[in-house]
Nucleic acid binder design. Structure first.
Lengths: 188, 188, 188, 188
DNA sequence: GATGAATGAGGCTTCATTCAT
DNA sequence: GATGAATGAAGCCTCATTCAT
């Protein structure tokens, strides 16, 4: 095996891209991302063949991290509401703790360059939460609604909640609770 | 008086931009928009000083049209639920009827180039609906929640609903109803 | 004869061009000149077929005005030194009084667009002064030097003098005198 | 280390710009300069951030070269007249040898894009010659005249002389002598 | 003649990507 | 692998000039 590509450098690029996307938007030059990552502009292409490739991997990485964080330390048993609430808290807390990651992910989500495959993989990462949701809504007012629709509603409520938490961070926890109650009323 | 600046041509540009943004994204060349509008390259700049200016005006125009459509023919009296439902139907129907307009608006909404002023004006256009919402939630479970947060939740549910309607157009009407019931459970 | 082109408008354009060239340089848009002249942008081309044409006419007009001013009220007789001094004063005073005209003329003089014909006509306008100079130098140290060279030297001294007068306007008169004495030493 | 920024390439651009300015004027496209320099379009901007930057550096480089050439091999002692004459010869010979450089410098000198700093640096480069001049005029007829004015006069005589030398190159040397005598009469 | 909208060629510059070192 | 100079396609916008009104 030749000198392996450094994992550190890969991470540095991913992190730099996150920051740069937040501050300059998706049209930020790759050269700027490289500079921010502390590497030469051509080196970026050793780790990611194209800018699109970088964006796709970044998107997926962020989405996966978010999803993983959400279900971390979730009690395997316990009543469904508590379990969903735990996930909800993990999720929204993550967004408060890493606002750049959320912002970058938001930009990437609407950008043409993210492929259908990447999006699909992102959805898969969210599967555990969606599963939980499915279980919960089974006996509620949305029992007949197609699951993807319910998932979309949950997501959109989460987004709205996190947006508002970001706007008024002092009461973030409180807003998270309000959002959760709203979600609960929707699906239960 | 020479050729006056033609309203038709302005509209042609606005329409062309809508279509082109949908098919090529926000980074589409102005030249393509001009071509699509059937005018010369440079003529676009007679009507909009810069691409950013075009995007801002387009965004506001779409948002305003959407908001106006939503409250059209809304009975001045009648119970609040019926009135909100009428608006909801107008709104979601519009999005089904003009999917490009909604898509373009979605892209523009997340783009850095849309100024704070434009966004503020967009919010003002939505005011009538927000007012209706405010009235309704006064006695409901969200009576203590800040209005902007409630507005954001409504919007996000609308978006999720319209997304799903677009994915499964045959049952659009049904999905709109589901979305509305979800909203109603949230605020009432 | 149809409605004649208005002489006023022509002058307005000429004056506007002078001002605009001073403030924006030769690459100033014709549209700006038109605006400054208080006419529509297309109207400029009724009076001057092309921008180059305008610049050529403007150059010649400025040069001619300068030359005419220089020899105005010059005593037909009197000793040559006094006559040249009168011209010199007229000339340098004009440049002080109309700094924009001098500046614009300076820009135009070095610009490719001024044709050889225009330059030749400009030289012809200076002929009376050059004639005076010729007479004077006949018995001086430059009697054998080709006249165009002597003319060039005079011109360059005049330019240097007017430049310095413009830089230190309070002592303009004094500087003009110094310049004249320098010239005199050169040719007498 | 990758390909280092090549001094050759920088020079090629500087030289190409000189030639192109002479043949096409200051409004010549950067693309043409690049082509003439044998490099790609965009490479020019690796060496000079903007066209203005290129023009400023070119101007300064030409002015500096001219000034350095003028004082080259000037005897440290010797009488002032001889020393000034040596400089004068060096100076005018340079202009004859590199007519394009002089022409380009002339265009640049009158162009708005050359900054005050660049002009100041150009003046500094001329300082040695101006110093010589100052010494000489101390006891002459211009002893009371502000030095910048005297410097301006010298310059203008040099310009007029070099113009005439260029027009009649066969007698260039002779004309240079005439110009020098004229200058000497002025300041001694 | 006057107006100012329409035209479209062209210029400067940016930037993803390649490649010599 | 790492570097950063080299490449050249492309984009936004300007502007002299034309032409419909």
């Amino acid at each position: 095996m030749p000198r392996p590509k450094s994992q550190d450098k890969r991470s540095a690029i991913i992190d730099a891209a996150t920051r740069v996307i937040v501050s300059q938007g998706l049209s930020a030059p790759t050269a700027l991302i490289a500079k921010e990552a502390g590497i030469a502009n051509g080196s970026l292409f050793t780790y990611f063949a194209t800018k699109t490739e970088l964006y796709n991997q970044l998107y997926l990485e962020l989405k996966t991290e978010m999803a993983r964080t959400a279900i971390k330390n979730m009690p395997a048993d316990g009543n469904p509401r508590d379990r969903l609430f735990t996930a909800w808290q993990n999720w929204t807390t993550w967004s408060t703790k890493y606002p750049d990651k959320r912002k970058a992910m938001g930009q990437l989500a609407v950008c043409d360059e993210i492929t259908a495959e990447t999006r699909a993989a992102g959805h898969r990462a969210m599967q555990p939460i969606v599963g939980l949701l499915e279980e919960i809504r089974a006996n509620g007012s949305m029992s007949k609604v197609p699951m993807p629709f319910v998932g979309g509603l949950m997501n959109s409520i989460a987004e709205a909640t996190m947006d508002y938490m970001a706007q008024d961070p002092k009461k973030a926890k409180e807003h998270a609770k309000v959002g959760f109650e709203a979600l609960w009323r929707l699906i239960s």
